[in-house]
């Protein structure tokens, strides 16, 4: 297991906390919580070691497109970049009020 930390500047707070996904094969769990500080703080724990650069690319892209002042906790069980991006988008969606969608398509 490896723990990776990332941080991005951010201005917009998210409306409410969100939890999506599961730490199951090829998937991941994301917890997104509003933060009063003007930045995104991300902690990734992953069972697949040595993919720090890939994580950086995926997260750089997502958080340059999405301004989110939040604390993000990621527990990963071998999700591909596509799944990671989709789950991040889902977490944002749930946070913005689409409560009913929570986890429904996993």
């Amino acid at each position: 297991m490896e723990t990776l930390l990332f941080e991005y500047p951010a201005a917009k707070t998210v409306p409410r906390r969100a939890h999506v996904g599961v730490v199951g094969s090829g998937d991941l769990e994301i917890i997104l919580e509003p933060s009063p500080e003007p930045r995104t703080h991300i902690v990734v724990r992953t069972g697949c070691e040595g993919f720090g650069d890939t994580w950086k690319l995926v997260l750089d892209r997502f958080f340059s497109a999405n301004d989110v002042a939040a604390t993000v906790t990621i527990n990963d069980f071998g999700a591909t970049p596509g799944v990671v991006t989709m789950r991040l988008a889902q977490a944002l969606e749930v946070s913005r009020g689409h409560e009913e969608n929570q986890g429904e398509f996993c």
Binding site: M1, H19, V23, I31, G47, D76
Partner: peptide, 21 residues
């Protein structure tokens, strides 16, 4: 005692296994 409470397994982490919240 849901995911935001983060009561996760202390034993998995010690064995290098990713826990769930």
């Amino acid at each position: 005692v849901g995911p935001f409470d983060r009561v996760e397994s202390p034993h998995l982490v010690m064995q290098g296994i990713v826990p769930q919240s």
